[in-house]
Amino acid sequence: MDPSMYLLDLVVFIGIFGIMSLSLNLEFGFTGLANFGKVVFFLIGAYSYALLSQAGFPFYLCLIIGALIAAVFGFLISLPALRLRTDYLAIVILTSGEIIRLIVKTEDWIAGGDWGTSVAPAIALPGASAHAGILVNIGLVYVCLFICFTISRLLTNSPYGRVMRAIREDEVAAEALGKDRAKYKAQILMLGSAMAGLAGGLYVQYLHYVLPGMFLPIVTFTVWIMVLLGGPANCWGALLGAALVEVFDRGANLAKDLLTLPTDASNLQYILFGVLILLVLLYRPQGLLKESAVKTRATERVRSLGGAVRNKED
């Protein structure tokens, strides 16, 4: 592949996984939900997109309906999961990913079973160059990313965002203050799942195919690395993490072609991923960027008046 295409491809991936990273940031970073099944909602968005576009729906409806279906699944998972302890929630979501992948793999009639099926691109430009095609994709992906980023920022800087952080810090206390934690958690899981579903749709229309092997648990884990590395509860951090992890991934792929190793380099890549996350957890659990302070007109004024609030926080 010529280098400029390679770079543009990287930009698309950063955009798609930036959406995933933002959505996990809402769930884990702000609300403290251990969603170990991001890939479930990514898969549902992807397969919804594939099936709807085969049925002849226009791409924007495919993306929106895919996101809505993913949100419904998020709601369904939230029903048993939200009354549960953190570790139970993690186990339930993680294992449900295995079941959903098993279903699309086994049932050939859904979308070609193990072999998958091809997906039409969202915006087809007959006769256009590969460059133009990828630039159109960048436009589409980054519009979606911008929408998700704006929603994240507005939400987390609102009173709603303060409830999210309160639930993360002490959910019993939040409940005692009259905040229905189950309702909030269900809403956040639905929103996060919708974003992940949107990312899934964008992903398969960009790659032009969908198959169960694309939705291994490693996808979930990659998104976790992005959020933890970038800095939980910081929307810019989520994007930074997504960019760093994708660049690292590409770098490792390039190195793989350049170096001749006596072993399969993709194994080493996963090992490096694992080591990276252990190092972050051991030595910088707060991530690269610190948690962003709540930013509203009122806090801005207080800050400009002398920064008392800020100093107290530090």
């Binding site: 170990f36 490693i218 976790w224 996963y270 090992i271 694992g274 080591v275 996350i277 252990l278």
Partner: peptide, 9 residues
């Protein structure tokens, strides 16, 4: 998360 990372390694 650390245990998943360790499993991956």
């Amino acid at each position: 998360v650390a245990s998943i990372a360790l499993g991956l390694i």
